Computed example of a mutant assay.
Amino acid sequence: MRINKIELFHVKIPLNFMFKTSKTAIDHRETIIIKITDELQNKGYGEVVAFTEPFYTNETLIDSKYVLIYNYIPNLIHKDIKHPFDIHKWIKPSYPMTLAALENALVDLYAKREKQSIMDVVFNEEINDDIYGGIVLGDQDVQELIKQIDHYKKEGYIRFKIKIKPEDGVLKLKAIREKYTNIQLLADANKSYKIEQIDELKKLDKLNLLCIEEPLDSVDFLEYQSLQKELQTSICLDESIQTINDLVTAIKLKAFKVLNIKVGRVGGLYYVKKMIELCRESNIEYWVGSMVESGISKILHVHLASLKDTYIPGDLSSSNRYFKRDIIKPEIIAKNGIIKIPKGYGLGVDIDETLLKNYTIDYEKIGGE
């Protein structure tokens, strides 16, 4: 396929609520939507899920825009690409979220040309037709958390991830577990505990959690190794694993038991596939997370969560939980807590071009007429 035109839509989408973690609070989401057009006028879409501030990883949206305009796109425009994964031969994952967005748009485009789904192109294995959704609840007081769990339980959700911090994380989780003995419950500390607080973390073992995600404010896998030896609860790594080498090291050290995979964080579907294969070989559980992201990136995670051997389906819920209107058509809908996997070519959804333009605060076009 020959790349004729690449467009960048820097969008700002209002959130329906203030989303809080131990590290940040946001009431809108800025991302960059990439639209790639080939010589046959087929179109593919990807999304840069970097944030405007480096609280999750060091990569920011400003970095992404600069790298796309002055490095990645000039090396791609008007060139013939046999397969989307070929770009990994000449682009190193120094800016993984930027690279992932470009690759994802190319995979969407390629799959449409080949009249296949994303999963056929990348995995070509049996998948589920639907998945259970999951709710992520930010750092709030326990009364508000219980109120929201009650609300989403009525919508059919059975799994909840709670953002926690050392000051009150265990107390919140204990109160939730005492009220809801049967829900699937996990915690995400976003690297907020010190290794010296191991006794506090060990209290989580009594709460029957699926896992605790990124507990330690550390980049040292040896500290995670020490913690996992002391915990019955499985440690889940997310932002600590950004490369294949990170994953290999963490596996060798037995620093964790579960991996949260996010396409943007690891540099694209090419690396996602390699990490899943490594997890399968090493008896590491894996599951598919998500970012605060538009449907263009979220629906990709919905597809990945349909793999048969995921530990839990994913941090995936209806589009209207986060946005009044999402960019994709149809939007993601969890009916009785269950999300259907799209069956169309590529991402399997259409893009609301009018809404995309309405959300756009900056626009760049490279190539084309």
Rank of each mutant, 00 (worst) to 15 (best):
M1R: 01
M1C: 04
I6R: 00
N16C: 01
F17K: 10
K20L: 10
R29P: 08
E30I: 06
T31Y: 00
K35M: 00
K35I: 00
F55Q: 07
T57G: 09
H83N: 15
P96C: 05
L102W: 00
E103I: 00
L106I: 01
V107R: 01
K112Q: 05
K115L: 05
I118K: 01
M119K: 08
V121K: 00
V122Q: 12
I127K: 12
I127Q: 12
I131V: 06
G138S: 07
Q140W: 04
D150I: 08
D150K: 09
E155C: 04
K161V: 08
K163P: 07
K165E: 14
D168C: 04
V170A: 04
K172E: 06
I176K: 02
R177L: 02
E178T: 06
E178Y: 08
Y180N: 00
I183P: 01
Q184E: 11
A187I: 03
A187E: 05
K191Q: 15
Q197Y: 00
L201P: 02
K202E: 10
K203Q: 06
K203S: 03
K206S: 12
C211L: 15
I212P: 02
E213K: 02
E214H: 04
D217Q: 07
V219W: 05
D220L: 05
E223H: 11
L227T: 07
Q228Y: 09
E230R: 14
E239W: 02
N245I: 03
N245L: 04
N245K: 14
L247H: 12
V248C: 11
A250G: 03
K252L: 05
N260Y: 06
I261H: 01
I261V: 08
I261N: 05
Y270H: 13
V272Q: 03
V272C: 05
K274P: 06
M275E: 12
W287I: 09
G289T: 05
S290Y: 00
E293M: 11
S297M: 01
K298G: 04
S317H: 11
F323L: 08
I328N: 10
K329A: 04
G337D: 10
I338Q: 12
P342I: 12
P342Q: 13
L356Y: 08
L356G: 10
T360F: 02
D362R: 12
Y363P: 15
K365T: 14
E369K: 12
